[in-house]
């Protein structure tokens, strides 16, 4: 089962790699990625479908880890999505 994490961030150099790398290092598989640049061009929204690699990995912990990255403005953690 995967969950969709929404990340609003300032698209500075390396931001995307930093975000995806953190998600993987913290024990989640990245199953899907969507990104759109906001019209104002000052921030971007990344939507990532993630799946924990083992039962000990918690989304609330991942959310806190993402929040502390410089340039991350907001995180949304919607409800779990059923597998396709």
């Amino acid at each position: 089962m995967s969950a969709r994490v929404g990340i609003e961030f300032v698209p500075i150099e390396g931001a995307l790699v930093r975000l995806l790398g953190l998600i993987e290092r913290r024990g989640f598989e990245v199953r899907g990625v969507r990104m759109a640049e906001r019209p104002c061009g000052r921030s971007a929204t990344l939507s990532v479908d993630v799946s924990p690699r083992d039962p000990g990995r918690r989304l609330d912990v991942l959310e806190q880890q993402l929040r502390r990255l410089h340039g991350v403005q907001d995180i949304t953690m919607p409800t779990a999505k059923a597998p396709a």
Binding site: G14, V17, L22
Partner: peptide, 16 residues
């Protein structure tokens, strides 16, 4: 080095 150190820095910059 920017890429190598991504997991071990609080933040990083390349001067452009």
């Amino acid at each position: 080095i920017f890429g190598i150190t991504l997991p071990i820095v609080k933040h990083s910059f390349v001067v452009r």
